[in-house]
Design a binder for these strands. Structure first.
Lengths: 328, 328
DNA sequence: CTGTTAGCGCCTTCAT
DNA sequence: ATGAAGGCGCTAACAG
């Protein structure tokens, strides 16, 4: 592997000159420039990224940390992140948090291998985030509440989203409304549930514990939760699934039991994932502004990096109901 | 930011001792070990990843390069890559190649910021791959043919897949079979088309140029291509879409024109993406062993890294037809 | 405009 | 078992 030294030697200049030439610093004569570039090409030289990063203590890349690279994560969100990152001349890498504290993600955070990070991965503990964030290493979390000078939150207003979903069902004439929840430790789930509760309360409907069942945010979980509800032999008139994946699992369960949606029961999901519109019946759901979340998140990272005074630690975006055919 | 020096000082030992202690080298007394670890904790010390990588000239991470992080890329493939990578104690990062030669991906390749890479991204030119690969930096390509000592190929037998898809249609009694192609520069597309042609030929069917139309591997492209075919006012009996995304776009076009699938026309896709089974009618398609491709790809990287003699430069996996309801 | 040089933070050989 | 010291490849003062 050729180093900058080799290039300098071949070009007959000092290393610093070679460095300047290679980095286009306006400080070197066109002739030298050319000599150096030719030498570099001849040796098939490429800078060693680490050495460079080490020296500048800056990587020019930001990380997007996802629980599972292969999961049905929000492609719109990634798009938002990606576009803004690129527009700012930074690089983006995605890394997975499978393995928790031992994961690649945790390592990148702790060892500060990037200039900033955006996290959407429950299994990265708050501790890791808190001890990694620092001046010059802003972290934005999309999935939790955290109080730290250099940790920023952007979230969608899930309380309002949960409220809206529930109220939508109520306005359609339903009074008995089930809730299939995500994992208990999920902040998103908690907020959606809060919204659900408030809507019930504001409309004078009594909350019934038997109609709350947990589905873990997975399709499989939604399926099982729905089967449980069905097994109770007393279904509510409508169900609010805390995410679309679970709702799709629920659809499957209803189908197997010949319960038809929305004739026999109405259901509403949350997220508006791509599949939602293709499922049968098409799923009425709550859309989150995913692209905006992603774009805003990176934007915040850059603002923090630039030490702009105007950065807030907390941002909130709102949701919107998308009506399809799963509610009567 | 605390460095190893600070830790050593606080623990009252030399830097080297601190390094040994921190890296669990069996060379330091338990007492010293403890002192150092405590000092590290107290200072909230974490090693600087770059310095470490620079010194060892090894990153312990491999990169998966995808054309578009947000695209509907194969989650099964990623899963295969991820699991095997993790099982080998390596880290995995995904990076996007949007931007081509200026992309993050190209940078990681050229600057050798990882120990190995797996590429599924047409817009990374062969040149970049060829000049980046070298001893100690194996690259496996999933989407092209390339001849280089340290470039490995794993591909699925797309020729056979294309053949099988076409033959399936023929066996169902269709003689007029259209082909909606991916981009011309796609090796995958080319192979599928070759398979299509051979099947036609082997069954004594004349290839008709008017039934080949390009769809760019996107849903939108498939939609437009199908509209074009419809506009020709003379539809084939069946269409082979070179991927599922395009087939789904086609489904949409047919629906809008009240042409029903499979009654009026049969269609078959390729890939077996997740959506395929949810679309209406469920799409008959050719499944690729995606998980296996991913797993094998990383496996090859590790073999190459270990300089095993048994590594081949070329691997081939086979496909399978999954019958659903879009072919009559 | 070009060259010399001092580190960036860490690992590791060599002596002790 | 521990310490001193060199250097990985690069950048950026600083001096000329």
């Amino acid at each position: 592997m050729a180093t900058i030294k080799d290039v300098a030697k071949l070009a007959g200049v000092a290393v610093s000159t070679a460095s300047y030439a290679l980095n286009n610093v306006n400080k070197v004569s066109p002739a030298t420039m050319k000599k150096v570039q030719e030498a570099a090409r001849e040796l098939n030289y490429f800078k060693n990224g680490f050495a460079s990063d080490l020296k500048r203590t800056k990587t020019n890349t930001i990380a997007l940390i996802l629980r599972d690279l292969s999961g049905p994560f929000y492609s719109e969100l990634i798009k938002g992140v990606q576009e803004v990152t690129t527009a700012n001349g930074y690089d983006l890498i995605a890394c997975s948090s499978v393995g928790g504290a031992q994961s690649t993600a945790a390592k990148f955070l702790k060892e500060k291998r990037v200039d900033g990070a955006i996290i959407l991965a429950h299994n990265i503990t708050n501790d890791i985030v808190l001890e990694s964030a620092r001046e010059g290493f802003p972290i934005v979390v999309l999935d939790r509440k955290l109080d730290h000078e250099f940790v920023y939150q952007v979230e969608v207003d899930n309380i309002h989203g949960g409220y809206a979903a529930t109220e939508y069902l109520i306005n359609k004439g339903h009074r008995e409304i089930g809730y299939v929840s995500g994992p208990m430790n999920s902040h998103d789930n908690e907020m959606r549930f809060d919204g659900y509760m408030s809507a019930l309360k504001d409309h004078g409907i009594q909350y019934q514990n038997k109609w709350k069942v947990s589905g873990d945010f997975t399709r499989e979980g939604g399926y099982r939760a729905t089967k449980m509800l069905i097994a109770q032999r007393q279904l509510p008139e409508a169900i609010f699934y805390a995410n679309d994946e679970m709702a799709i699992g629920g659809l499957q369960a209803f189908k197997e039991n010949k319960i038809s949606v929305p004739e026999d029961i109405s259901i509403i999901g949350y997220d508006d994932i791509q599949l939602a519109e293709y499922v049968s019946p098409p799923l009425t759901t709550v859309r989150q502004p995913k692209y905006e979340v992603g774009a805003l998140a990176v934007h915040v990272v850059f603002q923090a990096l630039a030490k702009e005074d105007s950065v807030e630690n907390y941002y909130n975006l709102s949701t919107e109901i998308v009506e399809r055919k799963s509610v009567k």
